[in-house]
């Protein structure tokens, strides 16, 4: 009895851990790791949801010339410091300044570039 309850307990603990391991990125979170880890910083996570509450799509995707494809724009810190792309707002004037490195560079190690949280990322395979 005791041995069995012990085994069951172990099974419960394992069963309880499995769903905890499954993680769900917020829909449309963009992860960018084209250069970050190679340059020694954590990958970037861009939350679409936070930005679309405040700005329409066209502000970034037309006015700021950010392309609709994860990792295809060729964003570098030099360009941001020059006021391009994210740097147009993240300058301490419209939004917080880019010296808050770890607010963007907050991805876990080994993160691949892409758009997360959608149908393509949670299924057993791509369509």
């Amino acid at each position: 009895m005791k041995r069995w309850s012990g085994r069951l307990l172990t099974m419960f603990v394992i069963a309880g851990l499995v769903p905890a391991v499954v993680a769900w990125a917020e829909y449309a979170d963009v992860t960018i790791n084209t250069q970050s880890e190679a340059e020694g910083v954590a990958p970037v996570i861009f939350p679409h949801w936070f930005h679309r509450i405040r700005f329409q799509c066209s502000v970034c995707h037309v006015d700021l010339d950010i392309r609709m494809g994860a990792g295809t724009t060729g964003i570098t810190m030099e360009k941001l410091i020059d006021g391009q792309y994210c740097g147009a707002c993240h300058n301490g004037n419209i939004a917080w300044s880019i010296d808050n490195c770890d607010l963007c560079h907050s991805g876990r190690p080994g993160l691949e570039t892409g758009v997360k949280g959608g149908h393509e990322t949670m299924g057993p395979g791509l369509y």
Partner: peptide
Amino acid sequence: EDGIHDADSPGTHLLQTP
């Protein structure tokens, strides 16, 4: 807890939750 942010990074805990 979303699986893409690094929970050990201090910046992660400063971000607004959806």
